[in-house]
């Protein structure tokens, strides 16, 4: 999983909130939407790319 998934999802939720509450101007709303769509894709990609990897340390 890529770095900052938590932050990315946090940013996305903030964008959704701003769009839903209509607190930004129309142009900004459209920019937010573009950014949000990008974040959704990034998150989906990192979720889909997650793989199991198991390493075992040497016991002392």
């Amino acid at each position: 999983m890529k770095k900052n998934y938590e932050e990315t999802i946090g940013e996305l939720k903030e964008i959704v909130r701003k769009i839903e509450e209509g607190e930004a101007g129309l142009e900004e709303t459209m920019k937010l939407y573009e950014r949000g769509t990008l974040l959704v894709k990034t998150c989906e990609k990192s979720l889909e790319e997650a793989e199991l990897k198991i390493t075992e340390l040497q016991s002392s």
Partner: peptide
């Protein structure tokens, strides 16, 4: 959610 697991045996 497959992620990296590091096993430290004990």
């Amino acid at each position: 959610f497959p992620v990296e697991i590091v096993l430290s045996p004990a």
